[in-house]
Design a binder for these strands. Structure first.
Lengths: 357, 357
DNA sequence: AGGCGGATTGGAAGCGCTTCCAATGCCCAA
DNA sequence: TTGGGCATTGGAAGCGCTTCCAATCCGCCT
């Protein structure tokens, strides 16, 4: 027979105050003497008390609803790892705290997507939302939502967004720097970079990190050749061809995500080059695919589920605070460079055949 | 101002009965005249009433907890798509219904994993659980759990398990049949099959489906060569080598999951064969990777999230019924063959170089 | 006809928490 | 000294639902 969980009344009795006072302490309410507050907190710890979220929301006016907004590139819908992982984290946070999660897919090609999203916010059925990239870089959109007094939290928001509202993500600049350091340490001096689309700030920051590492190592900036992709496998194929045609001498190709890295690998395989002997390739995200591909991909691991979870925890705190805004802050998620077989020391290539040969 | 949601009292007033009676109707309780039951149900529909799960569980004795049990092959932990998707579906079902989800990882190499799991069940902290493959094929385990009066639902349970308890999954035999039909229709007559580990019944059934399709097309059973893998990328590499060495004449290789198909592709690329010209390859699951790999993989799409969700819906219904068991039943998930570029018509190969050359 | 047991129904009491509002205590201006 | 205003605390009323138990109603037995 498991002992019953302690209730708020147990805490109240234990610390000799009324139930209401405990409630106030729990919710950070005003008007509680510091001494009392402390006493209550000690009781909470002593009894290992946990609030019952069901009861809290029953009393507090019904379950609240928050929304995860993501860009649906039509085709990416069914099986995207990034979005699944984010939603998983989101759901964990919400179900812990008695919130209901809904998702909202935005078609970025439709000109009125912002209008539709704002209508949803205005309808009042939503208590807060989380924006994912690249929506989370859209300063105008964030401002418009905030004007409606709706709390917003951004996943991987850029610097302009971070001064407006709360954001969660890895330090992309540092991650790019770390990847580049790894490569520079292995002896590389000529780099290619497959960037994200214009306006995708995370990808741009990764690039900046690469540039900083190069500068610190005394490598001329001209020895980096960057091209914009759109995060798809296909763009990885095409851009790697373009980059390698333009700069046959480069020995390392850094890609802004794993899918493009996979595309680049295909190009390189077709050219008959060895990886990493003739060319080192690195990705970003550490999707499950990066272990499966050949050779296994060196990449920057992002704790995507954790990011999703934290974003919603912050959002829910903001909703509970009742202020209608999530204070500007940036929560840094820990990233980790996962070194696999796709990167290594460069070796002298014999005559490099032109791509497509 | 959004109109307030109707409560159970609104329904009671609308149908002219007491709140208690409505509650009984909602929970399928006994002792309600058919006429009254029907009247209440009409009111529920008319008002578009939805029960408030928070209130239900507050009143009914606290939030209930269910567990997703999965085999953790130590390394697969961080980023498995299959498990993420399943958990996402599970969480959706649970959060809708006010249940709390926990997960339990089993190390299959440890001899007492069954004991640890049974201890968890006996501790009474769990109201029900969902078993995923290959645990869901373990008849003895399922029986042991059921003896403890704990409802179990299996994901992709084999035929022996299906007669014991509820199970959700695709019709693997039919999916194997469909894949084989596609290949036979394209002109293939000599097949390889990379199976799952012994005891993994879904994979075995897929093989049976392939065999049935061959038999129906009048292809001798001897023209199929099967080998057991363990669902890993690595085993796909190794077994495809073995199979192609033994049977250089085969033109199509069917794999029991996508990861092994990816491994097989690597082997084939290394041999310098063209896909699908020299060899068609198919997978199973439609993980995100199957679109990313080159060439894109023909595979059987499984709605994994949906399966996870249904499994928990069934489990929660069983828990709510209070009988302590989920009635034996098999819910078939819709699968779909996704034809991509890794399969096509066989063409005459010139001298096939031995693998590894 | 009187009485009894089972089938139906409703009344009342909370589940654990929050919010509203009244009660108390205290400090400072008048 | 007295009253106003503010900080602090507690009492009471539910949130929407279920469970326990009492109240009815009915058919059937003696």
């Amino acid at each position: 027979m498991p002992p019953k969980k302690p209730t708020i009344d147990d805490v109240a009795a234990h610390s000799g105050v009324a139930r209401v006072t405990v409630s106030r302490v729990l919710n950070g309410g005003p008007n509680v003497r510091a001494e009392v507050r402390e006493r209550v907190q000690r009781s909470v710890a002593a009894l290992d008390y946990k609030v019952n979220v069901q009861a809290r929301f029953l009393a507090g006016g019904g379950s609240r609803q928050v929304t995860l907004v993501h860009e649906s590139a039509l085709d990416s819908e069914p099986n995207s790892y990034y979005h699944s992982a984010l939603e998983l984290g989101a759901l964990r946070a919400c179900s812990n705290r008695g919130f209901t999660l809904s998702t909202f897919a935005v078609d970025p090609t439709s000109p009125d997507f912002a209008k539709r999203l704002l209508e949803l916010v205005e309808s009042g059925r939503i208590d807060g939302l989380v924006l994912t990239p690249p929506l989370s870089d859209d300063v105008a959109l964030v401002q418009a939502i905030m004007r409606l007094q709706c709390p917003v939290v951004c996943v991987s928001g850029g610097p302009k967004v971070r001064v407006l509202t709360a954001s969660v993500g890895i330090d992309d600049e540092a991650a790019g720097y770390a990847i580049a350091q790894l490569l520079i340490g292995a002896g590389h001096r000529n780099f290619g970079y497959i960037d994200g689309p214009e306006g995708h700030i995370s990808a741009a920051q990764r690039l900046q990190g690469v540039q900083r590492a190069m500068a610190e190592a005394g490598i001329p900036a001209a020895q980096l050749y960057a091209q914009r992709g759109d995060f798809t496998f296909r763009s990885g194929i095409e851009l790697s061809e373009k980059i390698l045609t333009a700069r046959g001498e480069l020995t390392a190709l850094v890609c802004a995500n794993d899918d493009m890295a996979a595309g680049a690998m295909l190009t390189v395989h077709r050219m008959g080059w060895a990886i990493p002997g003739d060319l080192s390739i690195s990705g970003f995200d550490d999707t499950p695919m990066s272990e499966i591909i050949w050779p296994p991909l060196t990449t920057a691991h992002q704790p995507i589920r954790w990011v999703g979870q934290r974003a919603f925890e912050i959002l829910i705190d903001a909703v509970n605070s009742g202020t209608g805004v999530a204070g500007a802050s940036f929560e840094t998620a820990p990233f980790r460079i996962v070194e696999r077989a796709s990167t290594g020391r460069p070796r002298n290539r014999k005559a490099a055949p032109p791509p497509g040969a």
